[in-house]
């Protein structure tokens, strides 16, 4: 698990300002970002979106304290990929605590290939459990600064 997020979460996959204000909008914005960086083929965009929304339908991935981890399994990706989005104003995400979410980590993993995918999801969530880390993440100025925060949380 040792800092696997460093490999999966590239600085280009960190969005400092999301524009969307609701759940479908945020998820679409995150997926579109992955299409724009070339992580997802354009023709696979809808398939990926459907996988994430279908998981969201079963139970919202909005956790507490403004953190949400939408995810999905789809063979549109061949390896674990992730994108982190930050929203300054927050978005309604049907979270456990009812508050709008501000930090979103979208994680996609191939359906037909086994691997420590849910473990990665759990690990990312754990890194965001400290209030101090979350606050500093919301104030961070760059992608690298955010990754450094993860490092600090992981080293603790």
């Amino acid at each position: 698990m040792n800092k696997r997020y460093r490999k999966v979460l590239q600085p280009r996959n960190i969005i400092l300002d999301l524009h969307a204000t609701d759940k479908p909008g945020v998820i679409a914005e995150l997926v579109d970002h992955l299409v724009s960086t070339g992580d997802i083929a354009p023709q696979k965009r809808d398939e990926v979106l459907a996988a994430v929304l279908s998981r969201e339908k079963r139970m919202s991935t909005g956790l507490q304290h403004g953190v949400a981890v939408p995810h999905g399994k789809t063979d549109a990706v061949s390896d674990l990929i992730a994108v982190l989005g930050r929203s300054r104003h927050g978005a309604e995400f049907a979270s456990l605590d009812g508050r709008p979410a501000q930090i979103f980590v979208l994680i996609l993993s191939p359906e037909s290939m086994a691997g420590p995918h849910v473990e990665f999801l759990a690990e990312i969530s754990r890194l965001l459990t400290r209030a101090e880390i979350r606050e500093r993440l919301l104030a961070a100025e760059s992608a690298e600064e955010i990754l450094n925060l993860f490092d600090q949380s992981a080293d603790r």
């Binding site: 079963r58 139970m59 849910v118 473990e119 999801l121 759990a122 690990e123 969530s125 459990t129």
Partner: peptide, 15 residues
Amino acid sequence: HIARFIVLEEILNLS
């Protein structure tokens, strides 16, 4: 957190 997430996903799959 790892066990909780893995079991949660499985319960959702089960439903």
